[in-house]
């Protein structure tokens, strides 16, 4: 049996491979950043990275079950009764995978060409958009699928929370990559300089000198980046993504908490506002009374 025939019969292995590639890609982006900054991260930030890393892993392990022949056989035995929507999901996933692979191949061919010192206005946008486009065009629609019946609102909020989490993670990954660019640019410029001084036999024994030069160069790159419209856009996207996710998560939490005798965020906010207004009024009246005395 040829490999192509295998692929036709077992598209599940391709999906699994696709999920692994996608999660490995973002996983290594997180790790790359956290490795660089880990010694300097406060505990809260470290936890955030660990959490972010766990999300793609979770997806990966979910999809990896599709690679186990037994479970896949069982799944595909009932293929003929699967609703059309599931088939479409798989189909879209396949289309997305192809698009993503194409993007990665193109990106790989551009490697080494994208980095120019102190220039951020011509950032290769495709570099960031590959996963975002696949997610937004092929997968997102399934999380926003119209829900029906008694539990429709609850299902909608679960879908929305997952959707916002994915969007947040996409924007965060883009932002992290953006923050990493000055490191890449300054390291490249520095290695070129070291190569040149070595060639000329002028390499200094004092590496502090080169470190000082690199840090200055890095600072300069960051200062240019931070004033660029790309950075400001990336910063706003990540803030917006985080806020949208928090908001969706809070709505979902309210749904859950209403089944328990626990006050929700909304209840607490209302209470806090009432206390705030009452206190303000009491203080005002106390001052008036003290003035009358």
């Amino acid at each position: 049996m040829s490999e192509n025939q295998n692929e036709k019969l077992y598209p599940e292995s391709l999906i699994s491979f696709w999920m692994k590639s996608a999660t490995d890609f973002w996983g290594s982006t997180y790790r790359m950043w956290s490795d660089v900054t880990e010694p300097f991260q406060p505990e809260g930030v470290k936890k955030q990275f660990q959490r972010l890393e766990s999300v793609p892993k979770m997806w990966q392990s979910f999809f990896s079950t599709l690679s186990v022949p037994e479970s896949v056989n069982a799944l595909f035995k009932g293929m003929d009764v699967l609703p059309e929507v599931v088939l479409r999901t798989l189909q879209s996933g396949w289309v997305g995978y192809s698009a993503l692979q194409k993007e990665w191949l193109e990106k790989a061919s551009r490697m080494g060409k994208q980095s120019e010192a102190y220039k951020f206005e011509d950032i290769d946008k495709d570099l960031f958009n590959a996963w975002a486009e696949v997610y937004e065009n092929e997968l997102r629609q399934f999380l926003n699928f119209p829900q029906i019946g008694l539990t429709r609102f609850y299902q909608e909020r679960i879908g929305q929370t997952l959707d916002r989490l994915n969007l947040f993670e996409i924007s965060l990954s883009e932002f992290m990559k953006l923050l990493y660019l000055p490191m890449e640019k300054s390291a490249k410029a520095m290695s070129e300089k070291l190569e040149e001084v070595t060639k000329n036999g002028e390499l200094s024994g004092d590496f502090n000198e080169y470190y000082g030069e690199w840090i200055k160069m890095l600072e300069g790159h960051y200062m240019v980046l931070f004033r660029s419209t790309e950075y400001i856009k990336g910063l706003n996207n990540v803030l917006e993504g985080g806020e949208n996710y928090l908001s969706a998560r809070n709505h979902l939490m309210e749904d859950i908490l209403q089944f328990f005798p626990i006050a929700t965020d909304k209840d607490m906010d209302e209470l806090c506002k009432e206390v705030y207004l009452l206190k303000k009024e009491v203080k005002k009246l106390s001052k008036k009374v003290a003035g009358l005395k």
Partner: peptide, 11 residues
């Protein structure tokens, strides 16, 4: 594009 060589041995 050739990658610049860092003088690792000297470092």
């Amino acid at each position: 594009m050739s990658e610049p060589k860092i003088p690792v041995d000297l470092i």
